[in-house]
Design a protein around this nucleic acid. Structure first.
Lengths: 266, 266
DNA sequence: AGAAGGACCAGTGGTCCGTA
DNA sequence: AGAAGGACCAGTGGTCCGTA
């Protein structure tokens, strides 16, 4: 393991700590790294109702993290895990709408961190691909379950499939039109909108980009190397389809006005 | 439905009947075509132990087929379904090794017919892709379960996944080096080898082709438009991997003789 | 209330092995 | 015996909904 580049991180000061953590995690692929050790230093790993999970190294990617001298008493100071003697793993802090470069304060994570998780998944995919090629096994081109499993095993416990799939179209906008993405973030932050509202608002700008590709959203994703490794979200696909139909209907009716019914004006 | 081209068929006289059947089948996508009607004219469809299956229009793609006037008494003359009052569907006739252009005689199917089944699957895939695009759904690039289900629903009951997967590497050789494929068929026919032996013998020539691509069998498959829609068989992938390792080891040992251990001679 | 993610489920790729 | 294919199974893509 362990070729997680620092260059992507240096752009945001607040990511540098994460970068160091990430480096250490990657070094101990399979259960290790500082966070894994720290968590193992706490109590026993929780029992799941079901054992779908193959490993359970515990760690958190929260950008707000405990002080160094609390290593052996992980999150004991965290009221999220209240009085109940629980050693349940805490969830990631929720995202809030932040401007580019802004560090989220309090028990929150910012959107630069969200997008950084997509970059991390890409690194994990590249590792999985490398291993598959060495072994002569079939090689994934997308971020699959296998990649999420690998990330977890490498200690990136804060990466999970539902979360990553949930925000793919937001990351798509960030990749495809960073200026528009940044403007949207600033606007939604100013209006004090929550993450859900911002997330919803990310759909349309991506559909607008897709219009230039004849609403072929697969072509849009494939046009961008960092985006092409992600499955197109169902809802985004549906929105593009609806939009294409609308455009086709509009073109047809305008051609009725402007010419014969089978004549395309544009 | 129904754009099954005749051009691919006219090359072999014995395929012309199948071509007509195929046209009719395709016209009645979803349970129809002449074969489906014929089969429905027989007795009741069999009951499966399990109901994995969604539809079961019955038909056979055997190249040796009943006479036209037996339409209402399907396969009653076929001793494969012996005395037992069974209306069990008969299996396809087994393949035998035939030369290019040769019609299999008796209750056998020839290799041109085998390869023709791959072309049919491609046509079904194209149909499925067309429908998916119209609906704005995700569009398969390979022959998937969905395509096999579509083929069955379209009445091509003689197409099934285990069979198609079993002979993919044979079809690959046919696509990649038809001359070599033809020579192998003639040789194995002459030696009166069975289909299993011929099938085994198809692996190595494909690996030889792959050598020119650095043993990247995915690249080999992707290089050919009719082959690229098929998943690379696991065993073929493994053979290429082993062969690459062998070649690397040979190169390393020859470079020890010829130069330093890290020097590549070629 | 808004949000994170464990857990589930329908349908997949892959092929074994009971069948003829 | 050699071969065709129903049927199964482990792990997938997708996302709901019990949880915090």
């Amino acid at each position: 393991a362990g070729d997680h580049s620092l260059d992507a991180l240096s752009q945001q000061g607040f990511l540098e700590e994460a970068a160091v953590q990430q480096e250490k995690e990657a070094a101990g692929s399979g259960g290790g790294g500082v966070w894994g050790m720290v968590a193992a230093g706490g109590k026993k790993v929780r029992l799941r109702k079901n054992n779908y999970r193959r490993r359970s190294s515990s760690s958190s990617g929260n950008m707000v993290w405990m002080d160094d001298d609390e290593d052996e008493e992980v999150e004991e100071d965290d009221d999220q895990n209240g009085g109940g003697g629980g050693n349940e793993r805490q969830r990631e802090h929720p995202f809030i709408v932040t401007e580019p470069g802004e560090v989220a304060r309090g028990k929150k994570n910012g959107l630069d961190y969200l997008f950084y998780l997509y970059e991390q998944c890409r690194e994990f995919l590249i590792q999985v691909q490398k291993i598959a090629k060495e072994r002569g096994e079939k090689c994934p081109t997308k971020v699959t379950n296998q990649v999420f499993r690998y990330a977890k095993a490498a200690g990136a416990n804060y990466i999970n499939k539902p979360k990553m799939r949930h925000y793919v179209h937001c990351y798509a906008l960030h990749c495809l039109d960073e200026a528009a993405s940044n403007a949207l973030r600033r606007s939604f932050k100013e209006r004090r909108e929550n993450v859900g509202a911002w997330r919803q608002a990310c759909y349309n700008p991506v559909v607008v980009v897709a219009a230039a590709y004849g609403w072929d959203i697969d072509a849009v994703f494939n046009s961008h190397p960092r985006l092409s490794i992600w499955y197109v979200p169902t809802k985004l696909r549906q929105l593009c389809h609806v939009e294409r139909s609308n455009a086709a209907a509009a073109a047809a009716s305008s051609s009725v006005t402007g010419g014969g019914p089978d004549h395309l004006s544009f």
